[in-house]
Every structure is written in structure tokens, then in C-alpha cells.
């Protein structure tokens, strides 16, 4: 028979977070992003809408960007998770980060972790996306400050930067 779990005592999960193994017990209704932020202190992933529309909670699970608010922490059992902290430390976002900085593609910074991770996924599969492609790729990430143009500029600039 399949084991049925509840919030108490929750379920034991084993994951790799930013390269380090993490074993923990989680309530079954806790979202992945709440677990990363509240239990592991990785507050670089932001929580905006909590229902999938804003993209601020974007994290990388087994190599692809997902919404951290739409995945349960229990579903990450066995998965490898990379948050903005890990991606930034690895240096793989350096060209994008510099382009965001020089083009003022962030103001409050709330959307920035999600923007960077999503843009990096785009650039990993498409060396030279046109502006329309960039816009489509980022269409699920809200920014309430910049008006988006500077973000599109920055991603375009990063795609041609020598640092990539």
C-alpha cells in the first residue's frame, strides 16, 4: 500500500540544494519556495503572488526553471535545486548580471532573481534571441518598476557579451 502523509509529521526529503546535500522533514502542503526561504534561509527567491503568475519565485529544479510556489517541497525529494544564490555564486549569470547593472534593468530588485534565471535558460538554448523571443521568454515574469525595456536591452546585450 502507498504511504499517506500529512503535515504532521510531514515527510522526509533528500535533495541537493546549490550543490550541497540537504535532508529535511517538510509539511506536505509547504511550497518549495517557502521551504527554501523559511527553513533554509535562502531568501533570494522571492514570493510575490503565490499562485503562479509573477515568476518572482523562480528556481531551477533538475536543470529547468520552475515556479517555486507551484511545486510542493515534498515533490523535490530526490531533486537537485539551484536558487539564485547558487547560480550567482557559480558565475554562470555574470554576463547577465553585469548587463542588468549597466542598463539599469532593476530598480527594487524584487523580480530580478526570476528574471536572471529565466533569461539564463533562454540564452542557454538560443545564442542570439531577437527582442520578440526575449519578450516571450520573460512574459511570465512581472516587473513593477522598470517597464521591461531595460530588461530586454540587458538580455540582448548579455547575449552578445564576450563574457558568455
Amino acid at each position: 500500500m502507498t504511504a499517506i502523509a500529512n503535515d504532521e509529521p510531514g515527510l522526509e526529503i533528500e535533495t541537493v540544494v546549490n550543490g550541497a546535500p540537504v535532508r529535511a522533514r517538510v509539511a506536505v502542503r509547504q511550497s518549495l519556495v517557502d521551504w527554501l526561504r523559511d527553513d533554509l534561509g535562502l531568501t533570494g527567491s522571492h514570493v510575490g503572488c503565490e499562485h503562479g503568475v509573477c515568476g518572482a519565485c523562480t528556481v531551477v529544479v533538475d536543470g529547468v526553471c520552475v515556479r517555486g510556489c507551484l511545486m510542493l517541497a515534498v515533490q523535490a525529494d530526490g531533486a537537485s535545486i539551484e536558487t539564485i544564490e547558487g547560480a550567482s555564486a557559480s558565475g554562470r549569470l555574470a554576463a547577465l548580471q553585469e548587463a542588468f547593472y549597466t542598463r539599469a534593468a532593476l530598480q527594487c530588485g524584487f523580480c530580478t532573481p526570476g528574471m536572471l534565471l529565466t533569461a539564463a535558460e533562454l540564452l542557454a538554448g538560443d545564442d542570439k534571441p531577437d527582442r520578440e523571443t526575449i519578450r516571450e521568454a520573460l512574459s511570465g515574469n512581472y516587473c513593477r518598476c522598470t517597464g521591461y525595456q531595460a530588461i530586454i536591452d540587458a538580455v540582448e546585450a548579455a547575449s552578445t557579451s564576450e563574457k558568455r
Binding site: M1, T2, A3, I4, A5, N6, D7, L11, V28, R29, E50, H51, L72, V74
Partner: peptide, 21 residues
């Protein structure tokens, strides 16, 4: 905005999943 409590099962076989349903 958090879900109400629910129970959770992650069956390993189709038969187990169908039995739960």
C-alpha cells in the same frame, strides 16, 4: 495565501494510484 491541509501520497505504480482514486 496557503493551501488548506491535505494528505499526500506518491504511489510508485499505476495500480496503487488507481486504488487510491
Amino acid at each position: 495565501m496557503k493551501p488548506a491541509p491535505f494528505a499526500y501520497a506518491a504511489p510508485r505504480s499505476l495500480d496503487e494510484a488507481l486504488a487510491l482514486l
